[in-house]
Structure formats: structure tokens, C-alpha cells
Amino acid sequence: MRYEAPETIDTAVSLLAGAGGDARVLAGGTDLLVQLRADMIEPELVVDVKKIQSMRTITEENGGFRIGAAVAGAELSEHPKVKAAWPGVVEAVDLIGSTQIQGRASMGGNLCNGSPAADSVPAMIAAGTMVSIAGPNGEREVPAEEIIVGPGKTSLAKGEMVTSLFLPARPARSGDAYLRFIPRTEMDIAVVGAGVSLTLDEGGTCTAARVALGAVAATPLLVQEAADALIGTKLDDAAMEALAAAASAACNPIDDKRGTKDFRIKVAGVLARRAAQIALERARGN
């Protein structure tokens, strides 16, 4: 295994593109090193991107925030403006692992690890996050929901890497939230995750909503039917129940060591409803 720590995106991309065997990007390393230690992967090259300044910084852009793909969770949580605008996203990132993990783990890494259960991903999908990708053929930008295509699999081509994530400007009267279910209070992989972002009009009617679920299918899901259950309503109990039903209906989970299929389907609805309630309170407060 070779270790490189380039200082520019171009160098990183050419290293990744030029690698003969398996090449991996190292940001926080909290998934990569676990896989290395367990001999699950044996990369020929590891490219540490933390010396690339733009990948380590958060910048305000058009009322939104561009978050370097290697910004650690702890750094994101300490950014008061991002937290005020997108509390659901920041809380979701904060749920990834322990305090120690937060010192290293990044949104970019959480996304590119490709886990259907990644905590930050439903929240970033709900928030309408756009992902910037650099590669041998230049840069491109895609919605967050288009990155993960299967467990451990992403839509990134060889030589490509995520450089930043863009959280758009927060509309007025909107709020977001993310909740996950784990058996303990910390340190577990989500058994179900639910991210909700919604916007109200002045009369309190929901005008826009995005609902995303994690750990209930092979990829995180953006559930249009769940959003539709909210849009046009005042988010009364009936709308919330419709949301829960739509969220449960969208699930296509498996039985595994972390939970049963039935459990995931039921709890997805519960969490979507609870997350929507929090998002609603936040929207009313904005």
C-alpha cells in the first residue's frame, strides 16, 4: 500500500486515476481504516485529502454553505451558521459514531462509504444537498441522492472523488430534522434513519417537503410519496399519519443482525412522523 497526501485536487485526481489497483480516498478514515484493519480491503494506494485546503473548509456561498468533503463532524457542529440553517443535517452528522469519530469523520466520507445506513445521508438528501465531484474529465455536480447506488457502491467513476457538498440557502419558514433508531443511545449503526425538510407558507401550509429514509433499502431513499403526504397540508395528525404510512410503504428492507424487516418498516413510519414534527416546529420558529 502506498500513502500519498497531495495538496491539490488535481494531484489527488491524477493519483487516483493513475493507480494500477484499488485506490481509496482517505478523509476522516473512520470507515477506511476499519476496513483496512479487518483486511476487507487491500488498496494499492490511499490518497489522504486532508492537506487539500478547500476540502477542509466551510464557505458561505449564495446564502448556502459549501462544505469541504473532508470537514470533520466536530468542525461542522462548531459552525454556528450551518447549525442554525440546517440543524437536521448537522445533527445527523453528529450522530455518526462517538466524539472520537466526530473528530475525524466527514460528510464526504459518510456519503462515499456507500452505506445505506449512513446517518448523514438521509438528512443531506432531504436538505437538497448538491455534491461536487472532481475527476479526470473535470468537475460535475449531482444531487446527493444520486451518489449511493448499492451497499458500498457509488456512482463515482474511477479517478473521481467528492470534493465538497453544497447545502442550499434555507428558505423562510422551513426546518429540517433527522432521527435514527438504534438499540443503544450511541455507537450503533442506524437500524432506520429518517430525514425530513419542509417549508411552510405564511398560513402554515406545507409548500415543499423532502423525506429521505436510511437503512430500509439497498440505498438511502428519497420518498416522494411521503413528501406528497405533507405538501398542501397543515401537517395535522392525518397528514402525519399519511406521511408515516407512505414512509413505511416505501421501505424495502432486509432482516439482519440489526433489525427485522417488519421492525424497520414500522419504525420508519414512526421516525418519519417524529422527524417531521421536529422539522415543523423548527419551520414555525423560523
Partner: peptide, 12 residues
Amino acid sequence: GFLDYRIPVASD
């Protein structure tokens, strides 16, 4: 592993 063999953590 301690990820999925879930012994109580301080916040539990």
C-alpha cells in the same frame, strides 16, 4: 465486534 455486540455505553 463492539459495534454489533452491544455492551452498554455511558449514555445508556
